[in-house]
Amino acid sequence: MNEWREKKPQEWRRYVNNEVKVTAHEKQECQGWVFTVDPVSASVVLVNFQDTGRTCVTVVMGHAVEAVEILKEGGPEMEERLSSLFMPTGHHGLTK
């Protein structure tokens, strides 16, 4: 029943770096830039950069996702900005 979870990794990957609107259980909606979709749980990691300088992260669990709509494509700048998130500090040898 949950089509979202049945997608292939290549399909999920197409959402990364784009701005999406996720509709979840009980018509809840979340919007943000896609950092990743976990291939194990199909959970969508959304990022919103706020005016205050803080970054807000919302993760919608794969089993709760009802629909994902692409609103806007992020360009190379957004791609760069997202790829630098969650980088471990003081760790060696971790890349990407």
Partner: peptide, 21 residues
Amino acid sequence: REEQQARSLLRQRYLRSLLAM
């Protein structure tokens, strides 16, 4: 290979987000 690479990128990013939490 394409499937493996996509899965790999997606999973690494997710694990990073969990570790950062």
